[in-house]
Every structure is written in C-alpha cells, then in structure tokens.
C-alpha cells in the first residue's frame, strides 16, 4: 500500500509545486527549479548505470542462443573495446575512442539515416496508390506540392502559388488543429498523474 501511496504523494507535491513555479520568476522559485533539475540529472546518471547492466545482461543471455549469438558477441565486444579505450586512454580529440566514434559510429549512423531515402520511396508508393477519393486527393495534392518545389514547377504560372497556399493554409490549419489537441492532451495527462487518477505509470 505504502509502496504505491508514497510515489503518488511525491508526484502530487512536486507536480503542484513545479506548476506554480512556472509562473514565479523570483530567484527562490528558480533555485527550486534548478534543484529539481539537479535531482533529475542525479537520477538519470544512476539510471545510466542500471541501463548499462541491462545491456550487458541482455546480450550475455543471447550469447547462448545460436540465432542471436553472433550479433550479441559483436555488441558486447564493441562495448568492452570502447570502455577499455575510453577509460584507459581518454576520450579527447585524437584518441582511439574519438577515432572509433568518428570513423565507425558516425558513418554507421549516417548509413542507417540514408536508408530513409529508399524507405520513403516505398512508403510514397503505398500512400499514392489510387484506392478511393481521399487517396486520389492526396495524390493530386502531393503531385502539386512536389512539382511546386522543383525548378520546372517554378516556370508554370500558378503552381508555386498553389504550393505555397497548400502548405500555408490547409496543411498548417490541420497541423495547428493537431497541436491544440496535443497541448490539451498533455495538460490533461499531467493533471491526471498529479491528481493520482492515472496510475498506469506505476503498473496499473
């Protein structure tokens, strides 16, 4: 019982205090906010330690599974290598750690990111298939917008203006509609958590 009540009380008190804090610019209020941030950083750093243990445990377990063992062995070896070079030789500019990061991790990330181009093509194909009235409208609109931002599109009198209008009026209006709903949803969720009505973050 207390295991559940104590977090709810802490959430209620801190939630109310931090909501009020937002409206008070006084240094007393700002220092309270800074203390909360420091606490959060402290908790986050501890969470990192727990997360690293989770990572090592997860991949160690998978070493026993033949279908996953190779990938997990690579992950663990890479992790251990970076730990050794990082703690042993530092992480500053020109170190092995920095070189590995710049020459291995960064290109790998860029490669994964660049895959998006192919994924976008296949997603676009699926989105623009004419299946009904809505899909047809989407196809026409997409065609105009894409055409409007190309060099050829600029030479057709009404296309750039129409593209601009599509982006600035219907597109922006729907975006704003979603954002207003999101804003209200955020406040509502926060309030439910502060008041202890929403307890699913505690497991239900």
């Amino acid at each position: 019982m207390l295991q559940r009540r104590i977090p709810l009380v802490i959430v209620f008190i801190t939630g109310v205090l931090m909501s009020i804090q937002y409206f008070i610019p006084h240094p007393v209020s700002q220092s309270a906010y800074n203390i909360a941030l420091t606490w959060f950083r402290g908790v986050a750093s501890m969470a990192y330690a727990i997360a690293v243990i989770s990572f090592v445990r997860h991949h160690s377990r998978r070493l026993k599974q033949p279908q996953n063992s190779f990938y997990s062995a690579v992950a663990l070896a890479a992790f251990l290598f970076m730990c050794i070079v990082g703690f042993g030789f530092g992480i500053g500019e020109g170190t092995i750690f920095a070189k590995m990061y710049l020459n291995v991790q960064v290109p790998l990330q860029a490669t994964t990111f660049s895959l998006l181009a192919f994924y976008m093509a296949s997603a676009a194909y699926r989105a623009f298939r004419v299946k009904g009235l809505e899909a047809t409208l989407l196809l026409i609109t997409a065609f105009i917008v894409m055409f409007g931002v190309t060099t050829i599109g600029n030479y057709i009198p009404f296309i750039p203006k129409l593209t601009e209008w599509l982006m600035a009026v219907p597109n922006l209006a729907s975006k704003r509609g979603i954002l207003i709903g999101v804003g209200l949803g955020m406040i509502s969720t926060s309030l439910k958590i502060i008041l202890g009505i929403e307890r699913n973050w505690l497991g239900g």
Partner: peptide, 18 residues
C-alpha cells in the same frame, strides 16, 4: 533512454503482478 528503461521495466513487472 536509461530513465525510461527503468520505469518501463517496473511498469511491465507491476502489470504482471496486477
């Protein structure tokens, strides 16, 4: 995210308990 991981773990564990 490490913080989200610790919470998600507890959420799943508690959900099974519930």
């Amino acid at each position: 995210n490490p913080v989200v991981y610790t919470i998600a773990r507890e959420v799943v564990k508690e959900a099974y308990y519930t």
